[in-house]
Design a protein around this nucleic acid. Sequence first.
DNA 1: GAGTCATTTCGTCACCTGGCGAAATATCGT
DNA 2: ACGATATTTCGCCAGGTGACGAAATGACTC
Lengths: 142, 142
Amino acid sequence: MTRSALALRVEFHKALANPVRLRILAMLRSGSLCVCQITAVLRLAASTVSAHLGELRRAGLVSERKDGRWVEYRLAEDPATRALLDGVFRDLERDGQLRDDAALLTRLRTVPLERLCRVDLDLAQLGISPRPPRSGPRQEER
Amino acid sequence: MTRSALALRVEFHKALANPVRLRILAMLRSGSLCVCQITAVLRLAASTVSAHLGELRRAGLVSERKDGRWVEYRLAEDPATRALLDGVFRDLERDGQLRDDAALLTRLRTVPLERLCRVDLDLAQLGISPRPPRSGPRQEER
DNA sequence: GAGTCATTTCGTCACCTGGCGAAATATCGT
DNA sequence: ACGATATTTCGCCAGGTGACGAAATGACTC
């Protein structure tokens, strides 16, 4: 059954009412990503990242493209959704957390996925020792 | 301590991630209101409405002005906040629930507050028998 | 001071959310 | 078929959310 505009708007805000999902959307603005790339930046369990991506997909904010066992997540193509997200992230351009994420992601994109995504990977092996996120679980001692 | 842009944005979306709070904000766009006017439209307990207004105030979306035992709630004056809310409600202009709310509110604004706000008021005494909200608690049989 | 009133706070309950590890699923390489 | 891999689902836990009625608060009237 078609949902009302109000109900859809509530779902939109619910999807964005979480720092992790905002960080994911911010990263996707620079191009598509797989779960393990996102997991590497966020320092969360893959199951947690997968759950968040599920929320974003149900809210119509991201779409997925499967290639074998790989799943490529990207921002939704819909112009209206893009315009909403543009407005959201225009206000977040200078946020420190998002800038740290972007910097780390830039480095991680240079690593072949087959190497980056091994579950036993230690980022230190790649010469990358990302600072823990500014807040959130699994925060390690600096 | 100053919160980050990301944290503030999360709070903004959390505040809007609820149909009741969106309805309240929509109603406030036509002018300031007291708790009992909002309560009359929403058909929720006054404590519930007060709690939602508290959320909106903490998110910086509404401000209050006390006049004796009356509290007048209005949208925040900040231009940036106003612009965000304009964007939100531009997409909701045709929503049925919000239109019903606006119609009922127009009628209620003609009723003196001293009469409207008596806790023992039965809206039927005013010749107003609002349809129950399209969804939500305390929904009565039609 | 007592009673009334508008509003807020408190405590409770049912339900939801977000984290995790373990298990399951689907795909790929051998 | 088996092992490996990326990803998703499940179950659990702690904490949060949104509804309510009752009580409390502060202002007003007498």
